[in-house]
Every structure is written in C-alpha cells, then in structure tokens.
C-alpha cells in the first residue's frame, strides 16, 4: 500500500478547483442550511461565539471528514467524495493548518525541529528552508530566539510565530486553515501577509473585525452549524479601511509605549 508521505510528489502536483463541505447537523442534530464551497484565491472568515462550531468546521476540512465526525459533514474535492486511495494520499497533505495551539511539546531544538520538518516536506534545500523559517519567525515575534533553544522553552508568542512561519514557508498544501491568529502576541498584519502570499483556499476562524472584513465572505456559526453566509459589500470595504487605520494607530502607540518614548 502506498502511504501519504511516499505519495507526496503526486499530491503536491494536484490542487482541487473546489472543496465542498456538505451540510451537516448542529449540536442538537438539526440539519445545517446548505453546503459550503471553497475555491482557491478566496478568503473565507468563520464567525460566531466560542463553542459555536468554527474549530469543528476547520477540523472537518483537515481530516477529510466522511461522515465520521460529530457534525456528519463530508468533504468533497471537485464536487465528489475522494475514494479510499485518494483519502490515503491526501491525509495531512491537503491542508496546512494553524490551530489555537500555542505550545510545542516535542523535545527538540528549534533548528532540528524545523530542519526535520523541511526534510519531511521534501524541501529542495532543507538547510536554507529552515534558516528562512526561523528568520521569518523572528521577524514576527516580539523577542527574537536562538535557533539552538528547545521548542518547549519558547514563549507563547514565539511558539506561535514559529508555527505561522513554518506554515507559510514549508507548506505546499492547496488549502490553508487559520484558527484565531489574533490571540497570538505576534505582528498580526505581517503574519497575515506572510500567510496569504499564495493562491490558496484560505479559511480563517476569527473574532477580529479587521480579519473578518479582510475576507471575501463570512460564515456565521451558531450551536455547532453554519447559520448564514454573508458576502462582503462595498460599504464594508470602506469600514475595513477605517478600522485598519485605527489599528495602525494603535500599533504605533503601543510601539512607543513599549520603548518608553513620548506619545506625539
């Protein structure tokens, strides 16, 4: 039997024109309104209170749900269910995922970890790829870290920065799932720019209005299921511009306060 890792080259060459999550059921077993279709180059934001089913939605995509998860959703690639062989080849390869996870547990140095990851992802020059990931992570984190430090010693923000840089630079998956980038204690704007620099299917679960409005459309969750879909309007773009401006100002003031400089 072929395995996901061995079929990497094949999977890498392939990117679906659409991913569909079929309608599932909410926490009370009531059916969801309709299917959700995701396409490359499109950003979809997931909104709703904590526990409303956003992470579950991401997890259904990541695991290529086939009715075997609590929501009962199925993931279709280009409109059809992947067969057993395709599921096999794609497991862990279809999506790059950034979860709410803020800590590493593996007992490795940052350098060895990223290098091993580059090797496992068959990067052409693993040493160079690892160097780039660590440099990018350090540009996002508040306080830079040494490549020789143990993963488990990184702060929450540093761990998060490393996960973001790793996902952005070492992944060739056609879909990118992001859960709560704003809780990260990292430079959110730079992180997003790093992550979005490709023509991927992007899905972001968020409570942040700027991130939500950066998306082409929003899925609103309630009680474990998608309640409604909202497409961004022109008026909302103007609101996004205004909020972004306010955020830049907040960032500027925060930087001054951190350095102990006078606010002017």
């Amino acid at each position: 039997m072929a395995d996901g890792a061995d079929a990497g080259a094949k999977a890498r060459a392939w990117a679906p024109a659409s991913l569909t999550l079929t309608a599932g059921r909410d926490k009370s077993g009531r059916p969801e309104a309709g299917d959700v279709v995701l396409r490359p180059g499109e950003i979809t934001a997931l909104l709703g209170p904590t526990g409303s089913g956003k992470s579950r939605f991401l997890s259904d995509i990541e695991s290529l749900a086939c009715g075997d998860t609590p929501t009962g959703r199925r993931l279709l690639l280009d409109g059809r269910s992947p067969d057993a062989d395709e599921r096999f080849e794609l497991q862990g390869r279809l999506v790059a995922q950034l979860t709410q996870n803020m800590n590493f547990v593996l007992d490795l140095s940052v350098r060895d970890f990223v290098l091993t990851h580059a090797l496992s992802r068959e990067a052409p020059d693993p040493q160079e790829a690892a160097r780039r990931v660590i440099a990018a992570a350090n540009s996002l984190a508040g306080e830079p870290f040494d490549p020789g430090v143990q993963l488990t010693q990184l702060s929450g923000g540093q761990s998060r920065a490393l996960m973001i840089a790793d996902t952005a630079l070492l992944s060739w998956s056609p879909a990118l799932l992001i859960d709560e980038i704003e809780n990260a204690g990292v430079d959110k704007r730079r992180a997003l720019d790093l992550l979005l620099a490709s023509d991927k299917i992007v899905v972001i679960a968020t409570h942040d209005p700027v991130l939500a409005l950066s998306a082409d459309r929003r899925l609103v969750f309630e009680h474990g299921a998608v309640r409604m879909t909202v497409v961004r309007t022109g008026e909302e773009r103007d609101i996004l511009a205004r909020l972004s401006e306010m955020e830049r100002e907040t960032t500027r003031v925060r930087a001054l306060l951190r350095k102990g400089e006078p606010l002017s």
Binding site: M1, Q91, G92, A96, N101, F104, L106, H117, L119, M163
Partner: peptide, 27 residues
C-alpha cells in the same frame, strides 16, 4: 494529534517512517 501542531505531527510521522519504512501510518 489534536493536542500538537501540524508541524509536530509531521515531524513525528517522519521519525516513525525512519523506524518503519513500510508501515501505513494513520492519525
């Protein structure tokens, strides 16, 4: 696997693969 990052899952899987070159690995 739900308790660790995707990168850690992949690095761990790579180590398993080094120890057993033929097994099917599933999460």
């Amino acid at each position: 696997g739900d308790l660790v990052s995707q990168a850690e899952r992949e690095v761990y899987r790579y180590r398993i693969r080094q120890m057993n070159g033929r097994a099917v690995i599933r999460h």
